[in-house]
Design a protein around this nucleic acid. Structure first.
Ligand SMILES: [Mn+2]
Ligand SMILES: [Mn+2]
Ligand SMILES: [Zn+2]
Ligand SMILES: [Zn+2]
Lengths: 152, 152
DNA sequence: TTGCGGTTTAGATTCATTCTAACTCATTAA
DNA sequence: TTAATGAGTTAGAATGAATCTAAACCGCAA
């Protein structure tokens, strides 16, 4: 799928600027472009995929800067890293609590909403003395029907 | 903690031989030593840790062979790979369904039992058409008390 | 204008993992 | 008893995602 990356709308640019500001960082043209790429197509791209998409709107952009931007976003809580086994890290701008489903055949990664009661039941299995801030849940399997909610 | 690696007992050697056989693979001295290392100290060692422990009982053993043995065990379903972010892969001989808890401060990895009802509630969040064989759950956090059940 | 500091950049480096090709060695065929 | 076969082991080379380094860039303030 080819998709022209539009620039950030007013609302998203403000969100980005605010989050960066809280983390003591500045809004830059490179960060805008990289963030726009993440919002435009929420398919959990790798750094290389982000790089190639971002280069279309900013040809001089370097791979190192894409790494830097994404690291900054993670630090500011704007984006999550998603890892499956030892494959390249993928990036996700969905801030709601969610798990990841990885399609064994296509490699596509889908977001799976995590209801609060499931989060609670998960937390409840921790023995006393274990205190967890982050829970990562990932499914590996197949998708039969193409669910309109989860296909791009 | 220093621990002398004893060789496999009769029971475990039979289990190993049977699982290897089903996967069309043979029992070798190297595989025995590497498997014994995994059973002796269930702290989710990395390949390098396995290598260093196994070398004590088999000085000529090579790192490549440790990689090969562990890959074979995973293929035969004797061992699970455990990944946290992009750190070195760790290996776990616990075949019961369980999650992993990673201590942010010490880096230690603990097994967390996964009750069937939690597994069910997790499976239930998958939309129709999504079919998952493998679910990975990992906690990141701190351990306050040292729980006798989970300390070695 | 000039200096400062955060950001970007290209390229070098790191390091876990995978690959390659030679060697070992137990089993099988002649 | 040899010879051939082939799975397993081994050292070292190659790979590649991620990190590091140092120079260039650039907006802002003295
Ligand atoms: Mn908003
Ligand atoms: Mn048994
Ligand atoms: Zn996601
Ligand atoms: Zn485990």
């Amino acid at each position: 799928m080819i998709r022209m990356i539009q620039s950030l709308n007013e609302h998203n640019r403000e969100d980005l600027q605010e989050a960066l500001g809280k983390g003591g960082q500045k809004l830059t043209p490179q960060r805008e472009v990289v963030f726009a790429v993440l919002l435009a197509q929420r398919d959990h791209p790798t750094v290389d995929e982000v790089f190639n998409r971002a280069r279309e709107s900013m040809p001089g952009l370097s791979l190192a800067t894409v790494y830097n931007c994404l690291e900054t976003f993670v630090g500011c809580g704007l984006v999550r890293q998603v890892n499956h086994e030892r494959e390249s890290t993928r990036y996700c701008p969905n801030l709601a609590p969610h798990a990841h489903f990885r399609d064994k055949e296509t490699g596509q990664v889908h977001d799976i909403e995590l209801p609060p009661e499931v989060m609670k039941s998960l937390r409840s299995i921790l023995p006393p003395g274990f205190d967890s801030e982050v829970i990562e849940i990932s499914f590996l399997g197949r998708t039969k029907a193409n669910d309109p909610l989860h296909s791009n």
